[in-house]
Write a protein that binds this DNA or RNA. Structure first.
Lengths: 231, 231
DNA sequence: GGACAATGGTGATCTATATCATCATATTTT
DNA sequence: AAAATATGATGATATAGATCACCATTGTCC
């Protein structure tokens, strides 16, 4: 089904990803034969809450936003996933329907894998299973800290968390550009657009950060850290 | 090392647990040889945040409370684990030190397994790995909903959640006894002792529940559900 | 058996942040 | 080019729930 060109591309992706790199050749071939590479534009929906789970999505390039939608029409952003990670793994294994939605941030390339193939590999390749277990574990722990923050930190602490999240987890730089508008950053901080704006602009006025539009530079990392720690 | 009596007990436990039951005999023997059965009293600490991870804890009898401690000295209860489940799996695989603490609720029996043995089984037994993946996935999803509730539901909704949690997840009955004092129930609802007491006593006055001391009976399940749903 | 801690409870404030209203730009659509 | 929408921003107001300060019981420990 796949053109040889795409098969080649997929193989290259597997070769350079930390998780698939050391797979036996046959396992990689299986994956290549049962995957396809898909490009998404900004804000495209990868999958939607309550729809049937179907495929494993491995992010090759770009960012993916994972969010929960609820009756109140005020979504919560659970996390942002970057390249070399999976989207929706947990739901895939635990539930027949997605428990949250996912959409692309910017242009994104996703390697879509057949779930059956993925499952067989997990069963036969213990090393791989253990890696997946580690990934899921980390996700759990991350949300634990989010919950803890949401309960005990007040806004400045949570906004500081968002700054650290982008700079340390996503862009690995203390100067970066928010890939999202304010109201979505607010979803990530568990607050409203207005409150987020007020708080981050206070950071700006206090010279803790530089901020023009979506461009940020963390000026006083120590203060941001203190704000995050003390909540 | 283990007395034959204990070895026998452990084997029986493995035989009747859904997760180990279908293991090959040799795998079960390995586990028996590398596990020990330990009794804990009410409020004993099983492991403490920031200490080195060491063993896999499988809950045989009783309940275990998982909580995060933080600087503000106000813990967050992440979940309550009941029999036939593991405590601390996620940390074990992701971090060298525990990311949260665990203590027993009431008298508890724990099967403590050697992590190395557990790991080897995961690598060699694909079925088992997949089961563990499913467990971890469910945990992730549960905390996602907790986070969502914490952000969007107000207190009555979260107190309703606590009622539903105990009745449906823990005791499988709409009449039960809280195994914890009010201030710990508050930790589970992400609020303070005072606010929790006020809210649950309002439920009582509104005849949604019956409540004497720690004994609860959910009278209007539909109203509790509505409170939980609408937040 | 007295002391001390733990637990359940209530009232009076206080405050962080949600909510509502509005506006200026910038961006996209027609 | 005009209209419509998205985005960033700011002020005024409302309020849920935290905080503080108590108190009465009950349980536990020398």
């Amino acid at each position: 089904m796949d053109s040889p060109v795409q098969a080649n591309d997929i193989m290259k992706i597997l070769e350079r990803s930390w998780i698939f790199r050391d797979f036996p050749v046959q396992d990689k071939k299986d994956l290549v034969a049962n995957s396809s590479l898909v490009r998404y534009d900004n804000r495209d929906v990868l999958f939607k809450q309550k729809t049937r789970t179907s495929h494993v999505m491995f992010i090759v390039k770009g960012l993916v936003k994972i969010y929960k939608e609820n009756v109140s029409n005020r979504p919560v952003m659970l996390k942002i996933i970057s390249g070399d990670h999976f989207a929706g793994l947990d739901t895939l294994f635990a539930e027949p329907v997605y428990q949250y939605s996912a959409s692309s941030i910017g242009e994104t390339t996703i390697l879509i894998m057949d779930f059956g193939t993925f499952n067989n590999l997990l069963m036969s390749n213990g090393r791989f299973a253990l890696d997946v277990i580690r990934l899921l574990s980390k996700e759990s722990l991350y949300i634990f800290t989010r919950l803890n923050s949401q309960i005990h930190k007040q806004l400045p602490g949570r906004v500081a968390d968002v700054l650290l999240y982008f700079s340390e987890e996503i862009y690995h730089s203390y100067e970066f550009e928010f890939p999202l508008p304010r109201h979505e950053l607010a979803e990530l901080a568990g607050t409203t657009k207005e409150s987020f704006i007020r708080t981050i602009n206070e950071f700006k006025h206090d010279k803790i950060i530089q901020l023009e539009g979506r461009r940020v530079k963390i000026v006083s990392l120590d203060i941001v850290r203190i704000l995050s720690d003390l909540g």
